[in-house]
Design a binder for these strands. Structure first.
Lengths: 85, 85, 85, 85
DNA sequence: AACGCATAAGTAAGAC
DNA sequence: GTCTTACTTATGCGTT
């Protein structure tokens, strides 16, 4: 067998690069999960302070939806610009 | 109507604190979404480099599962210990 | 107004078919919920028999994970095969 | 060591009963997943027939909520009966 | 541009 | 009764 195959049929350089990508994703995912935990902590804290977290979630969702509407409008404006440019 | 009620039936201080929580969540969510985008970028880059992103995803999933499995087994052992403690 | 619109803007045949789908989903959901209840009953029974349900849950999770891991690995292999096909 | 311990420190009869529970849960879970798949199939079919599945889901959710309201009312009635009985 | 997949949010149940 | 954990639903993303 040639050099190819030392790592399940892939040459070792390719395998190494694959590993790089996997590890980068893993590192970023870890960060992301960390932030998700932070968010949970904020809700916990709010709860401890006597707030109903459901309401906060609704509020967040609502504002996000509004933001979405704004984005849609922006895109529409951009579209118009293209037409009149 | 008393001062209470200026903000839908809750006093202004409470409203302010609520706003704080909402904004903290929003800020963290923004960060989180940013990282999610970074992850997508890594996959895009890998794809451009000629890799099959499905393979990378599977590798990531597989490794995550290995880690999870170990945790799962440790917890099971611990649980069994608890039975005989 | 034409015949269309008697049911909020859709013709009655379409409405009837829609209703069919909704009812099929509802019937199946009912079955599903029934089984979910059965599962809960099994855990209750186990608990009454003196078992730590957490252990049973962990066992179930562990076995499921084993199965999933095997599937995951098979898919990965298949994917690799595809690369060299 | 006594007979206890042949199976990770649990006597074999207990282990056997544990296994029974695990398997019952697994069997029921399999059934449940099968039905979940059936539900997905119904949605797929509806989609193929030109329906917007999101709307069907909303419809199903809405009817369920109505049912929930009915249950709440029933419980309230029951409560009253208790008071006046 | 539509489909399936994967993650994420929200909801509900069970443990302490 | 509170709290955490598990499940279910829903949305959004990548792919074909």
């Amino acid at each position: 067998m040639s050099e190819v195959g030392h790592n399940s049929g892939i040459n070792s350089e390719t395998a190494a690069r694959l590993k790089q990508y996997v590890e980068r994703v893993e590192r970023l995912t870890e960060e992301k999960d960390g932030i998700a935990e932070d968010i949970r902590d904020v809700y916990s804290e709010a709860k401890s302070a006597g707030f109903n977290t459901k309401i906060i979630r609704k509020q967040v969702a609502r504002r996000k939806m509004d933001a979405q509407k704004r984005i849609e409008e922006d895109e529409l404006l951009e579209l118009y610009e293209g037409v009149f440019a």
